[in-house]
């Protein structure tokens, strides 16, 4: 049984993070943007787990739990905002919410 190099775990995290970032940039649908944020947060979590595993310490997992908590709170508030936006603008287009244009 060969050892998994730590870089590979981090590469996985980077790839997932970048995919989430690409999705965030190319999507106009605000729910998709929320999903992309979740992907990116998850990728960050992977990086913590990999680091925790490398040093054999529980701290990485603790950090993941914090990220998880944050993600849960964020998604609940984000979804509430999406609902409000949909009710007010009758669309999920993030570009429609540009009243703050300078």
């Amino acid at each position: 049984m060969n050892v998994i190099p730590a870089e590979y775990g981090l590469i996985l995290a980077s790839v997932l993070f970048t995919l989430g970032l690409v999705s965030l940039l190319i999507r106009r649908n605000i729910i998709f943007m929320l999903i992309s944020v979740e992907i990116m947060l998850n990728a960050a979590g992977i990086a913590f787990i990999v680091a925790g595993s490398k040093w054999a310490q529980p701290d990485g997992q603790v950090m993941f739990i914090f990220i998880l908590t944050m993600a849960a709170a964020e998604v609940s508030v984000g979804l509430a905002l999406i609902l409000q936006m949909y009710h007010q603008l009758k669309t999920l287009d993030s570009d429609a919410a540009n009243k703050m244009k300078g």
Binding site: V3, E7, I11, V50, P58
Partner: peptide, 22 residues
């Protein structure tokens, strides 16, 4: 961004992960 991150990740010394369950 990805290329830069990969470059940073692979430029260091390779290290194995521990096999212990936490």
């Amino acid at each position: 961004l990805l290329v830069e991150m990969l470059y940073i990740l692979t430029s260091g010394e390779p290290a194995g992960l521990s096999e212990n369950m936490i």
